Amino acid sequence: RPLSCPNHEGKTMEFYCEACETAMCGECRAGEHREHGTVLLRDV
């Protein structure tokens, strides 16, 4: 079952931030994590 983002209601966490070692949604990735290296969560 997909994980919901606690910061963006209705968004699914699909990415993993390698710098912060945390899962995130597309909005997180485009925002606070935009300078960080990210991979698809399913690839982690």
Score class of each variant (00 low, 15 high):
residue 1 R to L: 00
residue 1 R to G: 05
residue 1 R to C: 07
residue 1 R to S: 06
residue 1 R to M: 00
residue 2 P to E: 15
residue 2 P to S: 15
residue 2 P to T: 15
residue 2 P to C: 04
residue 2 P to Y: 15
residue 2 P to R: 15
residue 2 P to G: 15
residue 3 L to C: 00
residue 3 L to E: 14
residue 3 L to D: 15
residue 3 L to T: 14
residue 3 L to P: 04
residue 3 L to K: 08
residue 3 L to N: 06
residue 3 L to G: 14
residue 4 S to Q: 03
residue 4 S to P: 10
residue 4 S to H: 11
residue 4 S to N: 13
residue 5 C to W: 00
residue 5 C to I: 00
residue 5 C to N: 01
residue 5 C to A: 00
residue 5 C to K: 00
residue 6 P to D: 12
residue 6 P to V: 10
residue 6 P to E: 13
residue 7 N to F: 15
residue 7 N to S: 12
residue 7 N to C: 03
residue 7 N to Y: 08
residue 7 N to L: 06
residue 7 N to D: 09
residue 7 N to M: 09
residue 7 N to Q: 13
residue 7 N to H: 02
residue 7 N to G: 10
residue 8 H to Q: 06
residue 8 H to C: 09
residue 8 H to R: 05
residue 8 H to P: 04
residue 8 H to K: 13
residue 8 H to W: 02
residue 8 H to S: 06
residue 8 H to G: 02
residue 9 E to Y: 05
residue 9 E to A: 05
residue 9 E to V: 08
residue 9 E to N: 07
residue 9 E to M: 08
residue 10 G to R: 08
residue 10 G to H: 09
residue 10 G to V: 03
residue 10 G to A: 08
residue 11 K to Q: 06
residue 11 K to I: 13
residue 11 K to S: 06
residue 11 K to D: 08
residue 11 K to C: 08
residue 12 T to N: 12
residue 12 T to F: 11
residue 12 T to H: 02
residue 12 T to R: 07
residue 12 T to Q: 11
residue 12 T to Y: 15
residue 12 T to G: 09
residue 12 T to C: 03
residue 12 T to W: 08
residue 13 M to S: 13
residue 13 M to K: 06
residue 13 M to H: 06
residue 13 M to R: 11
residue 13 M to A: 09
residue 14 E to S: 07
residue 14 E to T: 04
residue 14 E to W: 02
residue 14 E to Q: 09
residue 15 F to G: 03
residue 15 F to E: 04
residue 15 F to H: 13
residue 15 F to D: 07
residue 15 F to T: 03
residue 16 Y to D: 01
residue 16 Y to K: 05
residue 16 Y to N: 05
residue 16 Y to W: 09
residue 16 Y to V: 01
residue 17 C to A: 01
residue 17 C to V: 00
residue 17 C to N: 02
residue 17 C to P: 02
residue 17 C to R: 01
residue 17 C to G: 01
residue 17 C to M: 00
residue 18 E to H: 07
residue 18 E to R: 12
residue 18 E to D: 11
residue 18 E to S: 09
residue 18 E to K: 12
residue 18 E to F: 05
residue 18 E to P: 12
residue 18 E to T: 12
residue 19 A to G: 12
residue 19 A to N: 12
residue 19 A to Q: 13
residue 19 A to D: 11
residue 20 C to T: 04
residue 20 C to V: 02
residue 20 C to L: 00
residue 20 C to F: 00
residue 21 E to V: 05
residue 21 E to W: 00
residue 21 E to D: 14
residue 21 E to R: 04
residue 21 E to Q: 07
residue 21 E to H: 14
residue 21 E to I: 01
residue 22 T to K: 06
residue 22 T to I: 14
residue 22 T to L: 08
residue 22 T to P: 01
residue 22 T to W: 01
residue 22 T to N: 13
residue 23 A to S: 09
residue 23 A to T: 11
residue 23 A to K: 12
residue 23 A to H: 14
residue 24 M to Q: 04
residue 24 M to G: 05
residue 24 M to A: 13
residue 24 M to F: 08
residue 24 M to T: 06
residue 24 M to W: 01
residue 24 M to E: 07
residue 24 M to Y: 03
residue 25 C to T: 03
residue 25 C to E: 03
residue 25 C to R: 02
residue 25 C to L: 01
residue 25 C to V: 01
residue 25 C to M: 01
residue 25 C to N: 01
residue 25 C to F: 02
residue 25 C to W: 01
residue 25 C to P: 03
residue 26 G to C: 05
residue 26 G to E: 10
residue 26 G to D: 14
residue 26 G to Y: 10
residue 26 G to S: 12
residue 26 G to M: 07
residue 27 E to Q: 05
residue 27 E to V: 07
residue 27 E to Y: 03
residue 27 E to W: 04
residue 27 E to C: 04
residue 27 E to K: 07
residue 27 E to M: 07
residue 28 C to E: 03
residue 28 C to A: 03
residue 28 C to D: 04
residue 29 R to T: 09
residue 29 R to G: 09
residue 29 R to V: 12
residue 30 A to E: 13
residue 30 A to M: 13
residue 30 A to D: 11
residue 31 G to S: 08
residue 31 G to T: 11
residue 31 G to M: 12
residue 31 G to R: 09
residue 31 G to D: 08
residue 31 G to W: 03
residue 31 G to I: 10
residue 32 E to F: 07
residue 32 E to I: 02
residue 32 E to M: 07
residue 32 E to P: 11
residue 32 E to S: 14
residue 32 E to V: 11
residue 33 H to Q: 06
residue 33 H to F: 03
residue 33 H to Y: 00
residue 33 H to W: 00
residue 33 H to R: 02
residue 33 H to C: 06
residue 33 H to M: 01
residue 33 H to E: 04
residue 34 R to S: 13
residue 34 R to L: 09
residue 34 R to F: 08
residue 34 R to Y: 08
residue 34 R to Q: 15
residue 34 R to M: 10
residue 34 R to G: 14
residue 34 R to A: 12
residue 35 E to K: 14
residue 35 E to D: 14
residue 35 E to S: 09
residue 35 E to L: 06
residue 35 E to W: 03
residue 35 E to G: 10
residue 36 H to Y: 00
residue 36 H to N: 01
residue 36 H to P: 02
residue 37 G to A: 14
residue 37 G to Y: 15
residue 37 G to T: 15
residue 37 G to F: 10
residue 37 G to R: 14
residue 37 G to E: 07
residue 37 G to V: 12
residue 37 G to K: 08
residue 38 T to F: 12
residue 38 T to M: 04
residue 38 T to I: 14
residue 38 T to P: 11
residue 38 T to V: 07
residue 38 T to W: 14
residue 38 T to A: 13
residue 38 T to C: 10
residue 38 T to R: 05
residue 39 V to L: 08
residue 39 V to E: 13
residue 39 V to S: 11
residue 39 V to Y: 11
residue 39 V to M: 15
residue 40 L to P: 14
residue 40 L to T: 11
residue 40 L to H: 07
residue 40 L to C: 14
residue 40 L to G: 09
residue 40 L to M: 09
residue 40 L to D: 05
residue 40 L to V: 07
residue 41 L to N: 11
residue 41 L to W: 08
residue 41 L to K: 09
residue 41 L to D: 06
residue 41 L to G: 07
residue 41 L to H: 06
residue 41 L to C: 14
residue 42 R to F: 01
residue 42 R to E: 13
residue 42 R to I: 04
residue 42 R to T: 05
residue 42 R to Q: 14
residue 43 D to K: 06
residue 43 D to W: 00
residue 43 D to C: 01
residue 43 D to P: 12
residue 43 D to R: 04
residue 43 D to V: 01
residue 43 D to N: 11
residue 43 D to M: 04
residue 44 V to C: 10
residue 44 V to L: 05
residue 44 V to N: 02
residue 44 V to R: 11
residue 44 V to E: 10
residue 44 V to H: 12
residue 44 V to T: 11
